[in-house]
């Protein structure tokens, strides 16, 4: 970077003459070397997956979970500085709890992503703090069913709509990715007359998200899935996520890694709207398929996916 040494990169919250905040860009560097994380929004749920590089033989296998649960229906996984990721998660839990104490209901994913984006952004504003060295993928399921308010002990009147709009559709899967700058992306809605409109209230965020070292490979794999068509089932998504982590790991093949995955389904799906670890047998099955897919690829031809090479 040409501007290194000009002094504009020594403090957070300072703009360089060309309008950049270098400290945020450096924070992104911390993310770029982290373990690859992938999130997929399927039609009936969300899958999160992370590649955990085994840094020492002495680490306890299967412990040291990197995917965290927030409230009951949200999962967060992040690449970058791991303790920063924990800070991020703990803020998310506080936000979810504070929302519950105000509204007596679980926080909608769009609102959680918004609040977290705001929190992370605040760490780019002051010279007394440094930005978060993480990019976090936040996935969850907003309940599509009738939840009732927290603390409700009866069922209320048995006749009438009770002020509710009959047949209204609510909830569903949502996936967001929050970067060190605090930015996160909501989906574009295209209305009938072709106008693009961002509608936060109906936003579900990304179809697929990837961050960390293998993000380029992972992103190109995600693009091949045609997630926008909304055909991918959760079970298939689990297998794809495992495969993508394995493919993205090819660039750092010499290092061993552990695959950790979690999922959130609809209320009538396998996790009943909760964020949970993917069951062990399912994870092993997905890993087996991923390894097989890689071998098959090698047999066909030993070239990397075209046009996708690592930067740096």
């Amino acid at each position: 970077m040409t501007s290194i040494g000009t002094g504009y990169d020594l403090q957070n919250s300072v703009f360089s003459p060309d309008g950049r905040n270098f400290q945020v860009e450096y924070a992104v560097k911390a993310v770029e070397n982290g373990g690859t994380c992938v999130g997929i929004r399927c039609k009936d749920g969300v899958v999160l997956a992370v590649e955990k590089i085994i840094t020492s033989k002495l680490l306890k296998p299967g412990a040291n979970k990197k995917i965290a649960t927030v409230d009951r229906n949200v999962g967060i996984v992040s690449s970058g500085i791991i303790p920063d990721g924990r800070h991020f998660v703990s803020r998310a839990r506080d936000e979810a709890a504070s929302w519950r104490s105000t509204y007596k209901a679980p926080i909608p994913l769009a609102a959680l992503a918004g609040r977290l984006g705001g929190y992370v952004q605040a760490y780019t504003l002051y010279s007394s703090v440094r930005p978060f060295g993480v990019t976090a993928i936040v996935g969850g399921w907003d309940s599509e069913g009738e939840l009732g308010v927290d603390g409700q002990v009866g069922s209320g009147p048995s006749v009438g709509t009770g002020g509710k709009k009959p047949g209204a559709k609510a909830g569903g899967p949502a996936l967001y990715m929050i970067e060190p700058s605090g930015s996160y992306w909501v989906s574009l809605l295209i209305t009938r007359d072709g106008i693009h409109k961002t509608d936060k209230a109906h936003s579900k965020g990304y179809y697929g998200a990837a961050t960390g070292k293998g993000r380029q490979t992972a992103k190109s794999e995600l693009e091949k899935l045609d997630l926008a068509s909304g055909n991918l089932s959760l079970e298939a998504g689990v297998k794809e996520a495992a495969r993508i982590i394995y493919v993205a790991h090819e660039d750092s093949k010499d290092k061993e890694f552990e695959l950790e995955m979690s999922w959130i389904s609809s209320m009538d799906g396998p996790t009943k709207g909760r964020h949970q670890e993917v069951p062990k047998d399912m994870l092993e099955e997905a890993e087996k398929l991923a390894k097989k897919a890689l071998e098959g690829e090698d047999e066909e031809e030993t070239t990397a996916p075209e046009g996708e090479t690592m930067e740096e």
């Binding site: 990169d9 020594l10 403090q11 560097k29 911390a30 993310v31 770029e32 703090v129």
Partner: peptide, 17 residues
């Protein structure tokens, strides 16, 4: 280097000295 005076400054490599 210039990036190691406090823990709120990232180095260009994303390290916190």
């Amino acid at each position: 280097n210039n990036y190691d005076n406090d823990s709120v400054t990232f180095s260009p490599q994303g390290r916190i000295f």
